[in-house]
């Protein structure tokens, strides 16, 4: 199996879907000729032509709104918002239109669209190149919200998302584009070619939506997480010596509840870890679900490790980002309770 970065894996997914399905079209800001500011769509316009892969005006509402119209026609648009921090002008189209179209028309129309957005911090991106807005999508009925943590899942999940007839918000942690990142920013980047999850099948395969994975089996504590924090949790487990079972959600909502519940019932302890700000973050929903479904198995309060309730700062990046030390401290607290 060839080694691919997450960028190459995502590109491979779109390449394959462009070839398999004439109704797949790809567009967004700088996505066409230039191949995207992160190179995710590089070469696709040259291969499939400007009517399948093209540049768009700088208008997130226009990009998503036109994609909904294309979806209603029968196409399967895969559109890009350059940074998740810039989806806000499209929020009306996402919430009021894409998410509701099937429901309000009783299935007469629907929006089989995928909206890709690079998200997350850890890159000195400051306030508008670092955000993790997933909860603004998980709260919206009718949307699917997905976030891969590695090249193999990225390709399989993106293919599954494109094929899915529901609107999918596909969040790509840009800190993981070129290699896994465990929060040790002072250490050199390990490329995906040196990680087993960088081995990506060349052909068609899917990672089903609504399926979480046990990223690291363990017996002492369950860490529920996704995206970059999967690797941070792995480092924290290693460094604390606690036998943490790490669940990578992959699909944030709708999610794979049985996998979470089985793990927490087994370990009796749970920490929830995400980069996004804490209050009303997606961790609150996960905490509530674990509490509802695992109350009699819990031996300690559920811990949440998250970004602070502040905008994402520039200079204070590593005091903000929940790194392995902060996550490890939380793991210890859960074990001590």
């Amino acid at each position: 199996m060839p080694a691919m970065t997450m960028i190459q894996a995502l590109r491979s997914a779109m390449d394959l879907m462009l070839a398999r399905d004439d109704n797949v079209v790809i567009y967004g800001q700088d996505v066409g000729y230039f191949g995207g500011v992160f190179r995710v769509t590089e070469g696709l316009q040259a291969k499939y032509g400007r009517s399948r892969v093209f540049d768009a005006p700088i208008s997130e509402g226009g990009i998503v709104g036109s994609a909904i119209g294309m979806g209603a026609y029968g196409l399967r648009p895969v559109v890009e918002v350059q940074f998740a921090d810039y989806f806000y002008p499209a929020y009306d189209q996402i919430v009021s239109e894409a998410a509701r179209l099937r429901y309000r028309s009783a299935g007469d129309f629907f929006a089989p669209i995928t909206i890709r957005m690079p998200c997350g911090g850890g890159i000195y991106g400051g306030q508008t190149h670092s955000q993790s807005p997933e909860v603004l999508f998980t709260h919206v009925c009718g949307l699917r919200t997905v976030m891969p943590s590695n090249p193999r899942d990225a390709k399989g999940l993106l293919i599954a998302s494109i094929e899915n007839d529901d609107p999918v918000i596909f969040l790509e942690p840009k800190r993981l584009y070129n290699g896994p990142f465990d929060g040790h920013h002072d250490q050199p980047l390990v490329p995906w070619s040196q990680h087993p999850l960088g081995e990506v099948p060349e052909g068609y395969y899917t990672v089903p939506l609504e399926s979480a994975t046990v990223f690291r089996p363990g017996s002492a504590l369950t860490a529920i997480t996704y995206g970059t924090m999967v690797f941070v949790c792995e480092a924290a487990a290693r460094e604390t010596g606690i036998d943490v079972e790490i669940i990578d959600l992959r699909s944030l909502w709708p999610l794979d509840l049985p996998t979470l519940v089985a793990s927490v019932k087994k370990t009796g302890r749970c920490a929830i870890v995400h980069e996004a700000t804490r209050t009303s973050g997606f961790g609150a929903e996960l905490t509530a679900l674990v509490q509802e479904h695992c109350f009699y198995h819990l031996e300690a309060p559920i811990e949440r490790v998250a970004g602070w309730d502040t905008p994402y700062p520039h200079a204070q990046e590593w005091a903000y980002f929940p790194g392995p030390a902060r996550v490890g401290a939380a793991f210890r607290r859960v074990m001590e309770d």
Binding site: S66, A67, G69, M70, A72, L75, D92
Partner: peptide, 20 residues
């Protein structure tokens, strides 16, 4: 097309449909 309560949203969707 399905009518939405949110004003103007359909105007750009129509353009997308035409593009399709």
């Amino acid at each position: 097309f399905s009518i939405s309560g949110n004003l103007a949203t359909q105007f750009i969707q129509a353009v997308g449909w035409g593009m399709a």
